[in-house]
Structure formats: structure tokens, C-alpha cells
Amino acid sequence: MSDRLSVGIAEIRIAEPPARLVTYGLGSCVAITLFDAERCLGGLAHTLLPSAHRAGDVHRPAKFVDAAIEAMAAELVARGAARQRLAAKIFGGANMFEPLLGAADNAVGARNIRSARETLVALAIPLLAEDVGGNFGRTVEFDLASGRVRVRAVRGREGEMLF
């Protein structure tokens, strides 16, 4: 259990096996994992807002989906990962209070998901899997030994899923 490292809101962490990176209770926030399977080095980011570039604010990249992906990719490469081997998975982006907050398309969860997909395309990082949207919270656990991500939910669906 001591291998489990917690990643807070607006935080990026890089780790190697046997560590597991965990972030708890994602709602509209989006978590992104990047992994170099050959080097067994990966990172997890827990982000709040779609775009630092649009907000003109880069002092805390981990708050923003786009800036966090860029910062995490750069950090992984600096730590010995190969840029072209990085692959991503994304989680979260729910709309917790569905009916009243206007069209689901404009909800911040949906905008976070879109920003993640667009940023990955722009950086040519393949998106291997995603578990996004819905109206329930998720806890995400990234196992650096296998690259698999376990997602736990207490509402909306039962139990755990592996990605």
C-alpha cells in the first residue's frame, strides 16, 4: 500500500514501478495519464480547467488540461522517456449536476474532455483509452508496473473497471 502515491487537485506526479498513482473523487475535473511502456515511466495529472492558453495563465500548469499535458510530457522526456513512445488515457469530465447547468456540451467537464483530446492530437500522443463523461465521480489508480488504470465509481455504475 505504501507504493500508492496520491495526486491532488491541480497536481502532476511522475513515477516508476512499483508505484501506483491515485487521484480521488474526480467530478468535472479531468485526469490524464501518460505512459512510456518500454521505459515503464509514467505520470498522472489532475486538472480543473480546459485551457491555460485561452486563460492567458501559465503560472500553475497543472490546473489546466492543455498545459498539464505539455508539462507532463516534457518532464517525462527529461526523466528518460521517449517522446514518440508516450501514450495517453483520460478520465473524468463528468457533469455532476446534469439537468440544470445548461447544455451538456458547454459544461466544463465536456470542455475539459475536448481540450484533452485536442491537446493530445496536437502533440501527436495517441489516446489509448478513455472513461469520461456521465454524471458520477471517479477514483483513478494508475499502476506503473502494467500501465493499466483502475477506475472506481460509487454511483452511476457498480464497482471497478480496468483501462
Binding site: 467530478g27 468535472s28 480547467l49 465521480g137
Partner: peptide, 22 residues
């Protein structure tokens, strides 16, 4: 109008945090 969610506390409040973090 009130909104309700019964779920993990983090997921319930992150909408408010997102607004503040902007």
C-alpha cells in the same frame, strides 16, 4: 435553484473549485 449530487465528496465539490480556480 439547488443542485444535488450524492457521490464522492471530491466529485461533488470540484465544480465549485473549478469556478474558483478560474
Amino acid at each position: 435553484v439547488p443542485l444535488l449530487a450524492c457521490d464522492m465528496a471530491g466529485a461533488v465539490v470540484d465544480y465549485v473549485l473549478i469556478e474558483l480556480s478560474a
